[in-house]
């Protein structure tokens, strides 16, 4: 079995509350999607990756490289435009290469935007939001009991944890959320990110 690497610290959480961070991601998204330049789009993807890292997310680079490579490869199977290289039966054309790279980076960038702008303390509105909060409350409890689960008596040990955490008919305690206030640095980061991404449309 593989060891699970720990996540980097969430440095954005000190400066931005979950709603403000989510709004930043939502406002940046249309500017990113409308960006026509491939080089600028790659730069944006790298910026979002850095932000995701600052948000404490572990980025699996091989996964994303493979993602861009496979999307580009499947696009190359439908030739468009001038042939730049022939690799056996595969003809690499400018149009297909550009369209494949553009599509691949767009998709990977969308994941990075989501990774930096969405975090578990983002409260969804209404009854559904309340239920999601309960899910996280129980999830933290289950994670605490995880170390007591043994592979040799799997069902029995899972049962021990479940019986301790949830018995029907008993009053359950309430979830408590830590509220984070957005700091001046946080607001400055929001404005900078939004302005830079929208201004890049006119470069």
């Amino acid at each position: 079995m593989r060891r699970h690497r720990s996540r980097p610290a969430n440095r954005l959480k000190r400066h931005l509350n979950a709603s403000h961070l989510f709004i930043t991601g939502a406002v940046v998204l249309p500017a990113y999607l409308m960006q026509p330049g491939l080089v600028v789009r790659v730069a944006q993807v790298l910026l979002f990756a850095a932000l995701a890292h600052l948000a404490g997310k572990r980025i699996m680079w091989p996964y994303f490289v493979l993602m861009v490579a496979s999307i580009t490869f499947f696009n190359l199977l439908t030739p468009i435009g001038r042939v730049v290289l022939s690799l056996g039966p595969l003809q690499i054309t400018t149009g297909a290469l550009r369209s494949g790279l553009m599509k691949g980076f767009t998709i990977v960038g969308l994941v990075f935007v989501s990774l930096f702008s969405v975090r578990p303390d983002l409260r969804l509105p209404g009854k559904l939001g309340g239920l999601v909060a309960r899910v996280f409350f129980y999830f933290e409890r289950i994670i605490e009991g995880r170390k007591r689960i043994e592979a040799r008596r799997l069902i029995d040990s899972i049962d021990d944890v479940l019986l301790e955490l949830y018995t029907p008919g008993q009053q359950q305690s309430q979830a408590v959320f830590e509220r984070v206030q957005t700091t001046t640095v946080g607001y400055a980061l929001m404005v900078t990110l939004i302005s830079v991404n929208w201004l890049l449309l006119f470069v």
Binding site: L29, V111, S114, L115, L122
Partner: peptide
């Protein structure tokens, strides 16, 4: 929400 993929194709 946990994985931060709420706003993506994932």
């Amino acid at each position: 929400l946990i994985n931060g993929t709420l706003a993506s194709y994932v």
